[in-house]
């Protein structure tokens, strides 16, 4: 197999037009110059190395990339980084305490075995956090919780334990 030749010059950046964005991420103002077509999910993951936000379908259906944009659940795979400029974004990395202590929703997920591979989990949790923090009353019936989760796909758990985790989290959170 031929190997790289010494001194091979390989480009590092594309010729995309770039723009400056300033986004408040997990409470901290971040300023960067990025390609104008960079997705918010790629910006979070690859520019800021906040890799807890995952990408499952890149067309807004699976919910794995869900983050809070100005407090509301949004798809970071359908949002351009430039669109998020001037806004506040929260990701899964903002939830646990500095010492790693889990947020009540995260703890409930562990208690109820509500995750297996863990890939959909951050998006699922950010969606749930958005609901708890919305101030709106939550319907904690089985149907109500399932409806609330219906923007997020999970291929491992069969959802039942996620429903249980939401209910358990509600016991310790002042929901809506």
């Amino acid at each position: 197999m031929p190997r790289a030749r010494p001194g091979t010059s390989v480009p590092s950046v594309s010729s995309d037009p770039r723009a400056r964005v300033s986004i408040t991420i997990n409470g901290e103002l971040v300023e960067r110059e990025v390609s104008i077509r960079m997705l918010l999910s790629d910006f979070l993951r690859h520019e800021l190395r906040l890799t807890g936000t995952h990408v499952g379908c890149e067309h807004g259906v699976c919910g794995a990339c869900t983050v809070l944009i100005d407090g509301k659940a949004g798809r970071s795979c359908l949002t351009l980084a430039v669109q998020a400029s001037g806004h506040e974004v929260r990701t899964i990395e903002s939830l646990a305490a500095e010492d790693g202590t889990l947020h009540p929703i995260q703890a409930a997920f562990q208690d109820c075995h509500a995750l297996q591979c863990g890939y959909c989990t951050p998006g699922m949790i950010m969606n749930i956090v958005g609901m708890f923090e919305s101030g709106e009353p939550l319907d904690l019936s089985d149907e109500g919780i399932r409806l609330a989760l219906s923007g997020n796909l999970c291929r491992c758990t069969g959802y039942q334990n996620i429903v249980a985790a939401v209910r358990k989290a509600a016991e310790s959170l002042p929901a809506g």
């Binding site: 190395r49 890799t51 995952h54 899964i92 990395e93 790693g100 995260q106 562990q110 075995h113 890939y119």
Partner: peptide, 26 residues
């Protein structure tokens, strides 16, 4: 017994392939 792998995954600290930091990847 509760899964020992969960806290890292729940905090978003999982390391899936695209999360592995590589130096200037193509």
């Amino acid at each position: 017994i509760k899964r020992t792998v969960d806290p890292a995954l729940l905090r978003g600290e999982g390391a899936f392939v695209d999360d592995i930091p590589l130096a200037n990847p193509l």
